[in-house]
């Protein structure tokens, strides 16, 4: 049953949603909508499961005085009160928003900003004309970057035109090809899950 259960659920729910997409039936659509809403509930539960795992992991680390256990203390000191505020006062409350705006927002924005530093490193390290491919990559990258900013137009009106051509023609063609290939991959994997052929997500690979 450990194997058959998930396969059966996958088959039933997947078939209902797909069939309701093709068939004009109000009853079937209503069942399909319900199935889709179950997924939303599962997603919400998964968040709670993830949070529990974090608490377990860090709690265990503190208990066993594991490596860098002090950081686990810091984590729990911030995590638990914030969770409590969210659960008791709700996300609309001034307290929740205060913590969010003073701690979470700047920390999260900082993480994203760091991308620029890593990107700069990559530009320095990777954009070397070692061969023809690397040369094309660098040349087109530079043209698109220049085309995206006003100064490109100031240097020559041909730059934004060339940049647009790269984006509209070369890039679009490439993206469409990858999209078609990737989408077919998604269709194939989705069908395999629904038909119970894909079992890699099960504990023993379905064997």
């Amino acid at each position: 049953m450990k194997k058959e259960g998930p396969i059966l659920i996958g088959f039933l729910t997947g078939s209902i949603v797909i069939t309701s997409y093709f068939l004009k039936s109000t009853g079937l659509k209503s069942i399909s909508d319900t199935v889709v809403r179950w997924r939303l509930i599962i997603a919400a539960f998964a968040l709670a499961l993830g949070a529990l795992n974090m608490v377990r992991l860090h709690g265990k680390n503190i208990h066993h005085k594991g490596r860098n256990w002090q950081y686990s203390v810091v984590f729990l000191v911030f995590f638990l009160p914030y969770l409590a505020i969210g659960l008791i006062r709700g996300s609309n409350s001034a307290q929740y928003q205060y913590v969010w705006k003073s701690l979470y927002q700047p920390a999260s924005a900082t993480m994203y900003s760091m991308t620029l530093f890593y990107m700069t490193n990559a530009v320095w390290r990777a954009f070397r004309i070692r061969n023809l491919h690397a040369g094309i990559l660098m040349f087109t990258g530079a043209a698109v970057m220049l085309g995206q900013i006003g100064i490109g137009t100031a240097i020559s009106p041909l730059i934004p035109r060339f940049s647009s051509w790269l984006l509209d023609t070369v890039n679009t063609a490439g993206i469409r090809a990858i999209t078609i290939g990737g989408s077919l991959g998604i269709v194939s994997l989705g069908l395999r899950v629904i038909l119970g052929l894909e079992r890699s997500y099960m504990s023993d690979g379905g064997n």
Binding site: A43, A46, L49, G50, A51, N53, Y201, S203
Partner: peptide, 11 residues
């Protein structure tokens, strides 16, 4: 992704 944590564990 919290959803796949148990799967990763089992795999």
């Amino acid at each position: 992704l919290p959803e796949i944590y148990p799967m990763c564990l089992e795999i």
